[in-house]
Structure formats: C-alpha cells, structure tokens
Design a protein around this nucleic acid. Structure first.
Lengths: 232, 232, 232, 232
DNA sequence: CATGAATGAGAATTCATTCAT
DNA sequence: TATGAATGAATTCTCATTCAT
C-alpha cells in the first residue's frame, strides 16, 4: 500500500470560509447542474485551496486530498486545472445573480422612500453581505484575474452592466430631485465602491482581529460621502 | 526621474515597467549594497516576471533567461526563490523611503499655506507619482502579501508609522483650525487611501486604454471628499 | 533458496547480487506489503545501485533507468530518496527475521547434541549463509550506517536482542557444563563476530578472486577459538 | 555583498578528530612537501568533512567554508575533488610509514625477550595507538575504498608487504620455538587483525560512550588468542 | 463514475569547476 | 597565490494529466 489512500478525514474542516460555502455551492450547483457528492467535494476543496494559497501554488493533489477523492476523479469532472478555476468563478457572473442584485437594489430604493441616507446605508450593507457570502470566490477572482484572460473578459462583460443598473436606479433620480449634486456617475460609483472595498479589506484582511460594527461604520462612510469633510 | 504615466502601449510590449525601473533599482541598490552587473540584471528580471505573472507562476529558469545569466547565478545571490521575492520588495519599507515621504508631506503642508484643497491635491498627486514610480514593486507586494507572512509582517510594521505621520501632519492642524469636521483619523485615512487606490486601479488595471487626466481627476476626488454629495 | 557463494565473476558483470536478490525481495515484500511490479523493480534497482556505488553517489535518475520506470514513479512509492534507503534496509530488522535466527540457533544447539565444535561450526556456517543471502542489504547498512542516524538507531534497537539470545542459547550452557572457560559473554560474542566478519570481508571484498572452502575455513576458525594458539 | 565571505571563524573546531590531526598533518606534509597555511587548512578541513560525511556527500564549498578559504583556492592546490581525496589518503601508504611500523615491530619483539604474551600485547597496543592516531584517514580509506579503484590499488600494493613483515617477524620465530602451534600465517594474521578491528569499532563507533580500559581489553583478547575457549 | 499507479516535463536547488581580477 | 563571481549540467523532487482497471 504505497500511497496513502485519501479519506474524507483529510479534509481539514477549519472552514475559514465560514457559512459562505453554502451560498456558493448553491450558486455553483445552479451553473453546473446536478453534481455527484464527489464533484461537490472537489468544488468545495478547490475553492478553499485557491482562495487560501492561490491558483498556481495549489496542487491538484492537494485538492484531491482535501476533497477525499482520488486525483483522477478531478479530471473526470473538469478537463484541466484551469477549467476547474474558471468554472468555479463563473457563478459570480451567473445570469441569475446580477439581475438578482438589480432587483434587490430596486426594492431597497423603494423601501427607503426617498431618504437618501437610509438608501445608501442599505445598499452598502447589502453589498457587504454579498461580499461576505461570496468572499472566497471574489477573492479568487481578484487574485487570478490578472493572470487569466478568460476571467478578465468575464469581468469586462458583466461589470459595466452592474454599473449601469446602479447609476440608473440610484443616482439619476436623486440628482433629478436635487438631493445629490450633479457628479459624474463614474466618479460616484468608483468612489462608493472604493470606500466599501477599502472598508472590506481593512475589516477582513488587515485588521481581522479587531471588532467591527458594520452598521456604524457604514453610517460613517455614508455621512462622509454625503456631507464631506468640511463643516456645513 | 519623473513618474511616467503608464499607457496602453506599456501593457503589451515587453518592458511594461517603463522608466519606473530606474527608480526601483536605485532603491534596491540602497538596500542590497553594491551589486554586480549580473545581480542587477537578475533583480530587474525578477521584478518584471513577478509583477507580470505572479511569484508562483514564475520559474527561476525564466528569470535567468530574461536576465541573461545562468540559472545557478540566481542562487549565488539569493538563497532561495522566496528570498529573492522578499529582498525585492524590501526597498518599499526602506528606512530611507518612509521618512522621505514624511518630509515631502511636511513640505507640501507648508507650501499649501493653509489652503486645504491645494494641500490635498498635492498630497494625492505625490502619492500617485510614488505609486507610479514603484508600481511593479507595489503590484508584487499586493499580489503576494496574502501568501507570504514575511511580507505581511513588513507591511504591518511599517504601515502604521505612515498613518501616524499623515494624521499628525495633515489632519490635526486642520481640525484644530475648524477647516475639517472632527472625523476619526482612521476613517479619514482609510477613505483617502481607498479613493486614491480605487482611482489608481481603475486607471492602470481596469481601463488603461482610456486617457486619464490625473490633475482633473484628483481635483474631483478632493472636491467630493471635502464637500460631499449633497448640494451646499 | 540456498546461499550462492559470490565469485569473481559476479564482481564484474551487472548483476553482482546473484540469486541473493530473491531472498531479499521476499523479505522486503513482507515489510512493504503487496507491491506493484514497478515498485518491486525500483526496490531491486535501488539495492543494486546503493550497494555498488553508495547512497550519496547514486542518482535517483540512475535507479529509475535501471528499474525501467519513470523517475517520478520512485517518488510515488517513496517520499524521498532517503526514505527509499531506510525502507530497503528495514527488512534486516524485521520482527520475522531475528526470531527466525534465534529459532535456528536453538535447533542447531539441539542437533549438535553437546558437541561444542560441531555446534560452533554450524552456527558460523549458518551466519555466513545469512550474510550471503542478504549481502547487498548488509553492505548498504554497513556503508551508510555512519551517515544516517535512523539506521544507527535501528541497529542499536535490534542488535542487543540478538546478542542476548546468542549468549543465553550457546554460551551459558557450555560454561555451566565446563566445556568453555568462564569468559565474558561480551568478549566471546565480539570475538566470534569479529572473526566471522573478518573472514567474510576477506572472502568477498579483499580477495574475491581466490577460491574459498567455507567449511574448512570455518573449521580452522573454530579450532583457533577453542584451542588457542598455544600448543596443548 | 551577496555571498558571505568565509572566515577562519567558520571552522567549527569541534575537533572530533582529537589530537590525531597533528600526526596526520605531519604525515601529509611529508608527502605534499611544504604547504602554505591555506593549503594546510584545506587538507585539515577535507579530512574532517570526508571522515564525517563521506566523500560523495561533502561539497567542496563546505570544505572551503570550514577551511576559511575561497572555493577557488581548493582547485589551485588540488586538480579535482577526487585528487584531493586521493592525496589525503596517500600518506597512509607513505614509504616512510610502513617501514616505520616494521621497525617498531622488530623493536617490540626484541624487548619482549621471548615472552609471547607480552609481545602480542605490545603489538596490539601499538597498532591501536596507530589506528587512533590516523583514525580519520583510516576511516576515509575504508569508507571510500569500495568506490575508488585508485584507493583499492594502493591498498592491494601495500597491504601484503605489511603482512609479510608481520609473519616473518612475529609468527615464524615463535612457531619455530614451539610456543605457537603451526597455524597458517594468513589465518593468524586475519584473526589478530579481525579481533583488533572488532574491538576498535566497538570502542569508537558502537559504544563510544562506555569507558574502555585498552590495556585490560587487549590482555583479554590476547589470552583468548593464546589459550582458546576450552579450559586447559 | 471512480480509482490510483504511472508518466515525463519541468521545478528549485546544488555543485564541481573555471576564470578574470 | 588567492579570490569569488559565474557557470551549466546534474540532482532531487513536483505536478498536471493519462489510462487501464
């Protein structure tokens, strides 16, 4: 018995991904169709490994061990290692995901009932929740985008759509009603995203040990965006 | 050596590092001491390769070929591939670099002569120039930080110092004089950095093909920061 | 599988291990469990190479070529080159081997029926046969012991047991019956082993070209041991 | 300053060779002629390293560091690594060494004045002293002989001479005078050497921690040789 | 579907040796 | 004589992928 037979035990369930994995697996399943148990475990393990060590530094052998399957099994389900990467990230651009976000946005807008501050807080909070839910996938996407044209293209295709939706839904009505100055939509979006991403990175990567009160922090960010640094 | 704004051309041809490399090499040389010609070429090639393809996906053999040296020569100068990575990035935390930035900040503050908007624009412009000058190193640092504890530690050690300097030099005097509302320094810094980084990424990574007018964009960012979205 | 006396011919042609290899492979198989054909061939080739050129001077690539397998295959079955070495030598300390020797000793003792000379001749002859049978492994063990703590430990663990058995089975009864002077067991054992090893080395390493009559030589050694140099 | 400059400090003077090194260096010097300080240190370091880790596992770089010289310096004094090995061991076969031993033997014989036991004890004690004095060289010789034809040839050329001397000086006269039975010289020599080597190995390699009383042990060995195991 | 032994190209690293200074 | 940077072939080990079972 030369090579140790991998077992499910080998899966180090240190689950640094938190409950996120369930939402992700659901999204992946929607893309991939029905999955056998082994395939599901491969996907899960690959997300773990890619997110933690990066694509290039992850051996298929490592994924197999973590998934508790034979190395060959991976290649029964995914043509190549790269194919695995791409199909993992794909759900992020699922046609069912972006419209969902758009719909959420619209609902939030209606609920806020014209109160700009409430609206922005809700939007940011929801985006933050989304990021948390898909954190490992997003992390993989961001890490690997630079090195894989396929991923870049997927982003390029889908991102503008999201921006347009956001601009149309949020920005225009409020500029029209005079509650927001006439800023460029691109600047507005970039700024909101930058501030949110900045907070997200600090919270999860730079100072994860610290206690964070998302609601309060988002409130401060929104206030800064709305009122600026200068005293009124 | 003035910062050279990267353009789309740089993305495609072989030397995407542009003139930046000279400033970097000078900084590296200050850390490493006198370098033989071959060692210099190894450093240069490694920066290129790591920045373009990532650390894990770069073979030492590739670096050697690009540097025009034998593969063994790399290991005469750097104990391991990882050692090479770490010593490349080190100049970013050079004791001669951070104080320099601090000094620049002070000079800028004095020059602005109390005009907040001018000051912030100058600061952002200078930071942007710095990023451009050390772009490849910064890119390597950001890409690899997640995977190498040594890099994270170096950042953790040096970053807070920079923040403190910024807070003391810029924020406090202006809050004292009533030109800035009493916001938390952490929030202020995070926001400024987020907005600047967001712009930098968009400009160099997401839409490098577009023409960017740094001065104007920085002006808009500063206005947003100072006045907020709401009409005054 | 009777011991085959090595001759000068064996020294020069490729398979200097002669028929010994079969007995060895059986012992290795008992330790390693069922082995694939390729693994068996790796073991065989490694024994050959290590015995002939030493561990440090043997390239895994050489072993692979001799075994007719890909180099990678070696590392599928053995974690490192050193692991291969240690697992090769292990059968020499197999729990199934030492008791076997002890049992042989007892049988020999009984058969000799009190005749000391016959007994000692039988014992030496059997030990010589054992050495011949496992010659390559023994050679590897002796050559590499100095450089690998793991091997030394294995010897240190197992050797004393063998000595004790020998002392209890052979020496004590004969001292008790007055056929042997009251010598220290340690001295006795060391002497017998030294004389036998000395003969073995001369026969196989120093003067392998010469014809050796094992039975007669052992007789002379035993006579010397029993009667000494002085005329009686 | 990429590579650390080796200094004399790097010589780990844990001197496992004991005072032996002086006698050896004198012998080497007689072979090599006058030596520069650096060359002497190379020789010393090489003896250390080869004895401790074996020839194949010792890097010239390691020798250089231990000697506190540049790697290139080794090749100024010795054509190749193998040349270094061979010239190190050569003093063991120095024309000045073997006759010396022969002369010692004759002196010992005369002094013993016919008393066989005294003579043999003296001889063994002297041989043991010799082994101790040249231990590292002897160790290297024994370890590497199997792998280097040059060494084997040197042994083959010189060993028989020593045997002949021993036989003529010690054995023949005592057989003639009836103090020793008419045993084969070869058997006699082999036995004495085996017993002595056996003791030496046990004392220095197997149980070096134990306290050894050379004189007493040699006495026991000689008694065993002379009187045998059977009671008289 | 699943396995896991086998592959061989390629990875990082080592090392004896050369050579300009 | 001494240096140490440079070399490039060789070495140990890794890894994505294939394929017979």
């Amino acid at each position: 018995m030369p090579a140790k037979k991998p077992t499910a035990e080998d899966q180090t369930n240190e689950s640094s991904l938190g409950g996120a994995i369930d939402a992700i697996m659901a999204a992946v399943e929607q893309e991939e169709g029905a999955m056998t148990d082994k395939k599901r475990r491969i996907v899960e393990a690959a997300i773990h490994c890619f997110a933690e060590n990066g694509y290039a530094a992850t051996a298929t052998n490592t994924i197999a061990r973590r998934a508790g399957v034979a190395e060959g099994t991976i290649f029964r389900h995914f043509e190549t290692k790269k194919d695995l990467l791409i199909r993992l990230v794909r759900p992020l651009f699922s046609p069912s995901l972006l419209p969902l976000v758009a719909k959420e946005l619209r609902t939030e807008t209606e609920r806020a009932d014209g109160d700009l501050r409430t609206l922005m807080c809700t939007i940011l909070a929801n985006r933050l929740a989304f990021a948390d839910r898909f954190a490992p996938l997003v992390r993989i996407l961001i890490q690997e985008m630079r090195f894989h044209a396929e991923l870049r293209e997927a982003v390029a295709e889908n991102f503008p759509v999201g921006l347009q939706i956001a601009a149309d839904t949020v920005l225009k009505p409020y500029i029209a009603s005079g509650q927001i100055r006439a800023v460029e939509p691109a600047l507005f979006l970039r700024s909101v995203i930058s501030l949110l991403v900045g907070y997200y990175v600090i919270r999860t990567e730079v100072l994860p040990a610290q206690e964070w009160d998302d609601e309060a922090e988002i409130g401060r960010i929104v206030d800064l965006m709305l009122d600026g640094l200068r005293p009124r």
